[in-house]
């Protein structure tokens, strides 16, 4: 389709490899900006999306606070306690060790905990959306424990019921794609 004015069997090297490939490619991979949203989001989906957003934002604030406490706290600690320079852990001064080695595992921990929690929020949101309408009306109180087949460890998440009742049936069509 996209081989204009060129018989497919004739392969003549008249351009750079880049251009040749660009001309001969079958289909263009599409990735586009999401369009500006119109008013297609219905009330149930809107409420569910708002609840998910609120949870994610609380989580983001918590993780940011943790990061700030770690960085400013550790540097503040080293500034406030010069004695740590004279304490040695093995051959290395304690303050140097804290700076060089202790900060990285803590950073990793904050990020890993955040990502796990954020994925749980998303799992909950998807589960609430795909739940069968009839069942959800009946069993909203227990879905937190029974509907966790997908998530590792089957952990229950407190707060899952906040978006359960209003979102279940309404978000089914997935106007959010």
């Amino acid at each position: 389709m996209s081989l204009p004015s060129r018989p497919p069997h004739r392969r003549v090297r008249i351009t750079s490899p880049q251009t040749r490939i660009a001309l001969s490619r079958r289909h263009r991979p599409v990735q586009q900006l999401l369009p500006v949203p119109d008013g297609t989001m219905d009330d149930g989906a809107l409420a569910a999306a708002r609840a998910t957003f609120a949870r994610q934002r609380r989580l983001a604030l918590r993780s940011s606070a943790g990061l700030a406490a770690l960085l400013l706290g550790l540097s503040g600690l080293l500034a406030a306690l010069p004695v740590l320079d004279r304490v040695s852990v093995g051959p290395v001064p304690a303050s140097w060790l804290l700076l060089m080695a202790a900060s990285y595992p803590m950073l990793l921990l904050i990020a890993a905990v955040h990502v796990r929690a954020a994925e749980r929020v998303e799992d909950d949101a998807v589960r609430a959306r795909t739940r069968p309408p009839t069942a959800s009306a009946e069993t909203t109180g227990t879905t937190g424990t029974t509907g966790t087949t997908g998530s590792a460890g089957g952990a229950t998440v407190p707060g899952v019921t906040t978006e359960g009742p209003p979102s279940g049936p309404a978000a089914d069509e997935g106007p959010l794609r």
Partner: peptide, 9 residues
């Protein structure tokens, strides 16, 4: 909606 969509799986 533009914001919510960024957080909707």
């Amino acid at each position: 909606r533009a914001v919510l969509r960024l957080h909707t799986p």
